[in-house]
Design a protein around this nucleic acid. Structure first.
Length: 363
DNA sequence: TATACGTGGAA
DNA sequence: TTTCCAAGTAT
């Protein structure tokens, strides 16, 4: 069980020491990120919100170019609200977790239509908005509005687990971690404190080989004192990913080289994104007769060599690609000229399929 | 509480 | 190659 029984009173003086040490370290770092204001200043809520949505389960390096592109194209939340969903999904393509993009767009519309274009400032009101959960609501309230809220992301889970030597497994430990974090939030600069905790987790208190010798909190860290810091936080082992298989249909129109694409259903995997038509993805590849029955048009289909491999969060996928030339009306299908492929809402998997077909001469 | 939901980089 | 996992949310 836990070494420190989980909600025991935490001395305010120790909390103050930790916050001061961390903020002093944060000020020395002067880490520059496109969505971050100088220490002590408040960034625009729109920038904070947009960055926090993009950063959910996504690395800073991956987010940067997307954040810049979104701000260039939609400088205000009103601009984003007025955009077509298709344009937002296209701009988001490649970032993953596409429900974020759909919720982002809906959230912009709610803010424009129901909040006069102004972000609400309380956690409770933020929490009502699509795509904003407990972490993001607290992060926006703290960072954009300097409220004494305690966002807890994966970084902060790790820092707090180690700082207080919490040995309870995640996610059971979440309430304790939240309580400890809240107990550390200073009255002054709560937004910088939250960002400093995340920076500490990302740069010093890393998952593997934490750089404790560089840590501004090393003297306060119970995990380090007990020699168990690197093993925290404890987590249950992950389940293995099953393999699914399917066939994608690469159909080229002879007259102009256009390719048949379609839109995926609004909800679920890759919801609302554009795709190359395919069979269902199942544990076993369908037989040839079944494959031909699921093809969008009756043509002279031929299987291409090799396959496209892709790994999603909860399964792996092997996709064969079958190609043909043909033309015709396909319900739900759209013929897209090759030069317009780049400007489609194509997720990474589908870009792999396209590259696989083009590589074998199917341009 | 458990599961669905992407992607790419690091070890 | 495989595993881990990164500023989580919705259901």
């Amino acid at each position: 069980m836990t070494s420190s029984s989980a909600r025991d009173p935490f001395p305010a003086a120790a909390a103050g020491t930790i916050a001061r040490s961390l903020l002093a370290w944060y000020d020395r770092q002067a880490r520059v990120l496109p969505w971050r204001a100088p220490p002590g200043e408040r960034p625009q809520a729109y920038h904070v919100w947009l960055s926090e949505i993009m950063l959910q389960q996504t690395t800073v390096a991956a987010v940067k170019p997307y954040f810049e592109a979104f701000l260039d194209r939609w400088p205000t939340v009103a601009d984003l609200a007025a955009a077509d969903q298709e344009a937002v999904l296209t701009a988001w393509a490649g970032l993953g977790y596409y429900a974020r993009a759909r919720n982002l767009h809906r959230c912009a519309q709610v803010i424009s239509e129901q909040h006069a274009g102004v972000f609400p400032q309380t956690v409770a009101a933020l929490r009502e908005l699509p795509g904003i959960g407990p972490y993001t609501a607290a992060a926006i309230a703290a960072i954009a509005f300097d409220q004494p809220e305690a966002p807890v992301d994966g970084n902060i889970e790790r820092v707090i687990s180690r700082l207080f030597a919490i040995e309870t497994e995640l996610p059971q430990a979440k309430p304790d971690i939240q309580a400890y974090m809240q107990g550390l939030v200073p009255r002054e600069r709560p937004g910088d404190f939250a960002q400093a905790m995340m920076d500490l987790g990302a740069g010093i208190c890393q998952p593997a080989r934490p750089r404790c010798m560089l840590c501004p909190l090393q003297e306060s860290c119970a995990g380090r004192a007990k020699g168990i810091a690197e093993s925290l936080p404890r987590k249950a082992a992950k389940k293995e990913k099953p393999l699914r298989r399917g066939v994608a249909f690469w159909l080229v129109r002879p007259m102009d080289g256009a390719v048949l694409l379609r839109r995926r259903p609004e909800k679920g995997l890759l919801g609302g994104m554009t795709e190359v038509p395919s069979t269902a993805w199942d544990s076993e590849l369908p037989g040839e007769r079944e494959i031909l029955a699921q093809a969008p048009l009756a043509c002279d289909w031929q299987p291409l060599s090799g396959q496209v491999s892709h790994t999603f969060t909860h399964f792996r996928l092997h996709l064969q690609v079958w190609a043909a030339q043909g033309n015709g009306e396909v319900p739900g299908g759209r013929w897209v000229p090759p030069e317009e492929l780049d400007s489609q809402a194509l997720p990474t998997l589908m870009r792999k399929v396209i590259a696989h077909a083009l590589k074998q001469g199917w341009a």
